Simulated scan of single mutants.
Amino acid sequence: MNADVLRYSAFTTDPAGGNPAGVVLDARHLSDIDMQRIAADVGYSETAFLLPRADGAFDVRYFSPLAEVPFCGHATIAATVAHAVAHGAGEKVLHTRAGRVSVRVDPQLSATLTSVEPRVAALEDADLDRILTALRWRRDELDPALPPAVGYAGAWHPVIAVSTRDRLARLDYDFDALAGLMAQCGWTTLNLIWRENADTFHARNPFPPGGVVEDPATGAAAAALGAYLATRDALPPQRRFIIRQGDDLGRPSRIDVAVPMDPRDGVRVSGRAVKIEGAWRPLRS
């Protein structure tokens, strides 16, 4: 099992910020077992494995340290920027387990992905109670203007909005309880958010199903949030907003989100990525 694993941090220009991802630019010789072992060894929340196709597109597999996931936004940004560094900028078409995702990388190495068709579903009251119990949060700490729901843009993420930045900052949850609930419900991360103003959100994303306490930046959840805000008529007039994530982890990230008039066309998520040099530091629990 030999593979050249690159390491890039997404949604940042600083290797010490953003969300790190492992990247393998050509994984056609690797088995599923190989990919899982590499992802566990890398220890980042996801490693992306590109499998070049004859038509110039790519099949892509995403593995956390514990399991495969259908789609990962930050690893998509990292992988396409890494590919652009090696082979040039431009449009890249990815065939993921969740569906077709297009990514445009510009010459400045800023990447914009267009998600699969998003969806928003109700969050059952009993499931909300279980989430809040695991988080050690109370219902009266939630933002009544943004009621809980579950968003999808390649992976499912409950969206839980709180009314204060202080509540978001104080995150100390029951890892095992939340991991069990999320595995049962098929959720990838929790998207915990606070709205600073009309076009700025702060987010934290627990990721216990992947064996990671928290993601410093989560592109798939960002796209799902865009779809959720569209259904709540809560987007700013320009239908664009930014997400600040990772600040509480010491890995600040910035995610730019744009929602078309018809969200079924896919939510656009943009960010930079930078190569990480030297020894890596896993982000596992």
Results as ranks from 00 to 15, higher is better:
residue 47 T to K: 02
residue 261 M to L: 07
residue 84 A to C: 10
residue 277 E to Q: 13
residue 278 G to N: 03
residue 213 V to S: 14
residue 147 P to V: 13
residue 9 S to L: 02
residue 176 D to Y: 02
residue 143 D to W: 04
residue 261 M to Y: 08
residue 76 T to P: 12
residue 86 A to N: 13
residue 63 F to I: 08
residue 74 H to Y: 05
residue 238 Q to L: 04
residue 127 D to Y: 08
residue 143 D to H: 11
residue 184 Q to R: 10
residue 138 R to T: 03
residue 160 I to V: 15
residue 126 A to G: 04
residue 271 G to A: 03
residue 263 P to Q: 12
residue 55 D to T: 06
residue 269 V to S: 08
residue 60 V to N: 09
residue 61 R to S: 14
residue 230 A to Y: 02
residue 158 P to I: 07
residue 137 W to Q: 12
residue 155 A to V: 03
residue 172 D to F: 06
residue 18 G to D: 10
residue 200 T to L: 14
residue 164 T to Y: 01
residue 39 A to E: 04
residue 84 A to S: 14
residue 39 A to T: 00
residue 211 G to T: 06
residue 44 Y to F: 14
residue 223 A to M: 12
residue 274 V to W: 05
residue 183 A to H: 08
residue 8 Y to H: 11
residue 35 M to T: 03
residue 173 Y to G: 04
residue 170 R to W: 05
residue 2 N to I: 07
residue 202 H to V: 07
residue 151 G to P: 05
residue 35 M to D: 05
residue 164 T to L: 02
residue 123 L to W: 03
residue 241 F to I: 00
residue 10 A to Q: 02
residue 106 D to I: 09
residue 184 Q to L: 06
residue 164 T to C: 13
residue 97 R to N: 14
residue 123 L to Q: 08
residue 225 L to F: 05
residue 19 N to E: 04
residue 102 S to H: 14
residue 131 I to P: 04
residue 90 G to I: 09
residue 34 D to F: 13
residue 128 L to P: 11
residue 220 A to D: 10
residue 189 T to I: 09
residue 220 A to C: 11
residue 197 N to C: 07
residue 3 A to R: 13
residue 255 I to W: 09
residue 51 L to M: 03
residue 257 V to W: 12
residue 93 V to D: 13
residue 203 A to D: 05
